[in-house]
Design a protein around this nucleic acid. Structure first.
Lengths: 235, 235
DNA sequence: ATTGCCGGATTGTTCAACAACTGCCATGCT
DNA sequence: AGCATGGCAGTTGTTGAACAATCCGGCAAT
């Protein structure tokens, strides 16, 4: 009896079952993911209404199931529910931008300064995000720059080694993408901050976490004002 | 034509309509609120399963509607969904405690240090929470002490003047209550920290925000270890 | 131009149903 | 006795249809 092999297979199957369960999850989650994707990718623009019946048919789930998905996205502030009128893609205003940056200015520098997970691997991830952004810029790939920027900030928060903060940051970044889309993001918005990211990397590699955190806080409030100016100009 | 007055009335009515809509909200939200209340008040204890049919009947709402409510609470991490087995009241473990405090250690001192809303009114609210806690302690009202402590930390985050951070803190505090209940909270847990809260108030009133933030961070990590010790002892 | 009203469309909510899955018990086999 | 098999009841995941309440647009009437 090759018990060892057999137990391995058993464990593998169990892992497969578990992951399939959490990956596939319920169809409500899948529907939520699909709609979220459409929104953050900008294919569903701010203010567009999402009629339940048609959307449910399009995704291929029941209206009840879709409602569960929509409720979740409303909780994430990606959609807004107007009672008796349905859900629409949120249109973040100046207050939202201020609030988003208020959270980021508390969370991101805090993670850099006090996070217990500033390992070599995570430093490398930060540096990689910077390189990714530079490479994208060299290719005139503005979407790539924006994407790399998100990777950078996600990596910043990862230093806190907190699943809850990671999840929070994902929500914030999704909302940020909505902000950019809702103001017809040229995508060029992020390029000036690439060098700030690089500087933060330098400071961290030099071991000066306080300075890195301060630089990040300052750069975030600069970016907020930059964004607010652009929003009032266009929005 | 008193247009100015009229417009004021108009705006007031509009605000009323908006608030009534969000206050009454849907019955799914009401159901979620009821279940959440039962959980954070400790009447539904960790690990108890919540069969959809009976619960729906008890609340007086359809099973579909209840499912929307439960999904929301699962997203808040107050309940856990076990696929095909239903939802149960979450039982936070040591990892959850560590994570909760990781978030708090980033958010709360950050709010004290950098929050733009440290007005006299908010300082008074902090001081009031301290007084409330002392009064409760004098009355041997341990629940009152715990409640006052929550008020204090909510007031701390309020300094950031960020609706999103306020909402986040509410979630964290709800989870904290679940932690305390799940380890048979004696309620006495909070009393040693009353004086820390008072000290933080003193420092803030003296204008030393940095020191206040540092003290809060230190006290939070002390509380975390205290709690982890108690949890491994009993849990 | 404002008001009042009606019809179409959509949401909020319920009910009933069914397949898939879980846990458990009893059956049967060794 | 001990163990696997299979069936059985109970729950969940999901669907479809229904209905009142509400909202929007237009149309008529004043």
């Amino acid at each position: 009896m090759p018990t060892a092999e057999f137990d391995d297979v058993l464990a593998a199957l169990d892992a497969g079952r578990r992951s399939r369960r959490t990956v596939m999850s319920t169809s409500a989650d899948r529907a939520a993911r699909q709609v979220r994707e459409e929104v953050v990718e900008g294919r569903l623009r701010s203010g567009t209404r999402l009629p339940e019946e048609r959307l449910a048919a399009a995704i291929g789930v029941s209206r009840n199931t879709l409602r569960e998905a929509l409720s979740q996205l409303v909780a994430e502030r990606i959609l807004v529910r107007e009672p008796n009128r349905g859900v629409v893609v949120a249109t973040p205003g100046p207050d939202d931008i201020r609030d988003l940056y208020a959270v980021r200015i508390v969370v991101e520098p805090g993670a850099l300064e006090h996070g217990p997970g500033l390992t070599d691997a995570r430093l490398a991830a930060l540096r990689a995000a910077v390189d990714e952004g530079r490479a994208a810029l060299a290719n005139d790939d503005l979407d790539g720059v924006a994407s790399a920027n998100q990777h950078f900030h996600r990596a910043v928060v990862a230093v806190a080694r907190s699943p809850r903060l990671d999840a929070l940051m994902d929500l914030l970044l999704a909302e940020m993408r909505l902000v950019f889309h809702s103001m017809g993001d040229p995508g060029a918005f992020h390029t000036p901050y690439l060098e700030d990211n690089a500087r933060i990397c330098d400071l961290l590699e030099a071991g000066d976490r306080d300075a890195a955190a301060r630089h990040l806080a300052g750069y975030l409030s600069r970016a907020r004002d930059h964004l607010l100016g652009a929003a009032s100009g266009r929005g």
